[in-house]
Amino acid sequence: MRRLYPLPAPPVTAPDLDGRGTGTADVTDREWSLDELAEAYAYPAADDPARSGRTGWLRANMVSSLDGAAHHEGRSQPLSGAADMRIFGVLRALADAVVVGAETVRQEGYRPARAREAFAARRAAAGQGPAPAIVVVTAGLGLDFTLPLFTEPLVPTVVLTGAGAPADRVAEARAAGAEVLFAGEGLGVDPARVAGVLAGRGHHRLLTEGGPRLLGQLVAAGALDEMCLSLAPVAAVGDAPRIMNGPAVAVPERFALASVLEEAGFLFTRYRRS
């Protein structure tokens, strides 16, 4: 892996005969350690000006093919690669909670997040539990509560829905051990309230893995702070959706480039709300 942006400042060296230094930026292609990746993707500190007025920090992590597909035959795995999966694991290990739509839970066969020894000390120092909570965003609660996601998590899985959700399904979710939170007055979730409701449960470092519909709703509501996009060197063709599929916005939401890493033809980009 190598960093393409921002490049480190070249080392200061004695000038050549023509008066210019000989130092060059270090863009060596090598495998980064988990600690290096964790530093590269660290959440902004609570006093960072970027977090001014925000109850937490919501970042997204998605992968896309060169032709804009968010998945292939319903799953993102065919677009992924070894480096993408390392970054996927690091982003999860840094988060308090992973926010995901119910359809993605069903399609991708979500399981509870696992504890990783490599991040145990880092999480403990940050006051985090052994693994992030999985937060499932759903309106109708059309979920199988007998799955390991609900019956075997290290920390309780959260079901995030609206106050108008079916009462019998809410009761079933709670009976299965899930924590049910309401972030909307109607049937579904108000995306603008997601970060605030989860912050009330101590989840400030948030990661969403989509899918495209949920991510589109979050962006349209102005709720997304950071976009981590892996661009895979493949063309999927087909009719897969883009990484965001939501209501149109009056003015396109603008983000600023924060970093670009590269490995094996994959580009790992990170954008922050500008």
Rank of each mutant, 00 (worst) to 15 (best):
R272Y: 05
R193T: 08
R213P: 06
E209G: 02
L160C: 12
T138M: 05
V251P: 12
Q128Y: 01
E73R: 13
A220M: 04
G140D: 15
P112Y: 07
P191Q: 11
A163P: 12
H71N: 13
S33E: 09
D96A: 06
A38G: 09
V249T: 14
T146M: 05
A70P: 09
A70Y: 08
R272C: 05
L4W: 07
T208F: 05
R116S: 06
A163N: 12
A192S: 08
A195K: 10
G238M: 11
Y271N: 11
P247K: 09
A83C: 14
V180H: 13
P6W: 08
G265Y: 00
H203S: 13
A163C: 07
L215H: 05
L143P: 00
W57V: 08
A171N: 14
V98G: 01
G222V: 02
G200A: 08
L58E: 07
V63Q: 07
S80W: 06
A42H: 01
V180F: 14
E39M: 10
A183W: 14
L215Q: 05
R30K: 13
G202P: 05
F145D: 12
Y43D: 15
G196P: 03
A236W: 13
D48K: 09
V27S: 11
A221D: 03
E172D: 15
Y43I: 09
Q77W: 15
S76T: 15
A192W: 10
V12R: 15
V27W: 00
V137M: 13
A115S: 01
V189H: 14
D225G: 06
L187E: 11
R193K: 12
R114F: 04
F119P: 04
P10R: 12
L224W: 00
L58A: 00
H204G: 03
S65Q: 10
R242C: 10
V158Q: 03
T104V: 07
D67G: 09
V194D: 14
A173T: 11
N245K: 10
A60L: 03
R201S: 09
G81S: 06
R86A: 03
G81K: 01
T22I: 05
T138I: 00
D96S: 04
D26T: 03
A38R: 04
E226N: 09
A40D: 12
G238N: 14
R122W: 03
V12K: 15
E39C: 12
G246M: 04
A199T: 14
L214A: 06
E108M: 02
G164N: 00
L17S: 11
A175V: 15
E262M: 01
P132W: 02
E209Y: 12
E253A: 14
Y5R: 10
V98W: 00
I243S: 10
S64R: 11
V105N: 10
A126D: 02
G142W: 07
A195Q: 11
L257T: 04
A95V: 01
R106S: 00
M85P: 11
Q77R: 15
P49Q: 10
S274L: 05
D29K: 02
